[in-house]
């Protein structure tokens, strides 16, 4: 019926993104500043607890920046999926009354998180420079990690968002799952702590695409001390992790396209 990337859809997408972003920070005194402040405050708490009190970061150069990079990427992933999964349900009023390609709603919901991430990454770079990290050519590889993480978040949003239309429990299940996942990804602790106990467990953990992305970003941005999936599990492990992302995305798009026709009746 519609060409998915037609001019009409691009106009609609742009308009929805603009509206979402405008509405989110309207009436708040600090406005867009919250997009930067929220992750910085969370980082401050984690920094005091894990770097200063528990001393997790000893032996890792630039540990504060290392920690900040991890939390910023993690926050992006959770924000993106939380918004994306509920997008169809929240825009039900539109879907019931106007015909338009439904993916537009999911992409616009996740894009606010993406904009926030880009702002936050600027903060990360500033912090890194202040902290004495020397810029290298490998910084140019960091956008690849961001793209991979966004593809994964969008895939999960499309897949679980489509299921969530009928089974509203999915959103809540995912939120609980994410709380557990926070500890299964080496964000606050270095992966070397796990390797010291069991190398097998560390390898399995790094096959998680979220962990792979975070470690890659840290390795390229801050320090080669950050062990990547490609190093610990090997090139095949890295390919497997990226493969999971591609597989999730392809399945999500196929499933979403099949179900989208009936959203207007079910939402």
């Amino acid at each position: 019926m519609h060409n998915s990337f037609s001019r009409r859809n691009r106009v609609l997408l742009a308009e929805l993104i603009k509206t979402d972003f405008k509405l989110r920070y309207q009436g708040s005194m600090l406005g867009y500043m919250w997009a930067i402040l929220r992750p910085l405050l969370m980082f401050a708490i984690l920094y005091v607890v894990f770097a200063k009190v528990l001393r997790f970061g000893d032996g890792i150069p630039h540990y504060p920046v290392y920690l900040l990079t991890g939390t910023v990427l993690w926050n992006f992933f959770t924000e993106c999926t939380f918004q994306g999964i509920h997008a169809i349900e929240q825009r039900g009023d539109l879907i019931r009354k106007i015909s338009f390609p439904k993916y537009v709603v999911v992409v616009s919901a996740t894009s606010t998180a993406l904009i926030n991430l880009l702002i936050n990454l600027v903060v990360v770079v500033v912090f890194a420079l202040i902290n004495g990290v020397v810029p290298t050519w490998s910084w140019l590889l960091v956008p690849l990690s961001v793209v991979e993480l966004y593809v994964l978040a969008l895939g999960i949003s499309l897949l679980l968002g489509a299921i969530n239309v009928k089974f509203r429990d999915i959103g809540s299940i995912w939120e609980v799952l994410m709380q557990a996942m926070f500890y299964a990804v080496p964000i606050i602790y270095p992966i070397t702590m796990v390797t010291a106990t069991s190398e097998v467990i560390a390898k399995i953990m790094l096959l998680n695409p979220i962990a792979q992305v975070i470690q890659d970003a840290r390795n390229n941005l801050i320090t080669t001390e950050a062990v990547t999936t490609w190093e610990l599990v090997g090139p095949l492990g890295g390919i497997a992790s990226v493969g999971i992302v591609v597989a999730v995305f392809v399945i999500a798009v196929l499933y979403f396209r099949k179900k989208a026709k009936y959203f207007a009746e079910e939402v």
Binding site: R7, R8, V11, E15, T19, D93, I98, F100
Partner: peptide, 28 residues
């Protein structure tokens, strides 16, 4: 099917007209 689909009370009249238009498939 209904008037003012997508109208948002927090947006100005002008913004709502453009948003409504985009939903109906009109370019800016």
């Amino acid at each position: 099917i209904e008037l003012g689909v997508g109208f948002n009370p927090e947006l100005t009249g002008r913004e709502n007209v453009y948003l409504n238009g985009a939903l109906l498939g009109f370019s800016n």
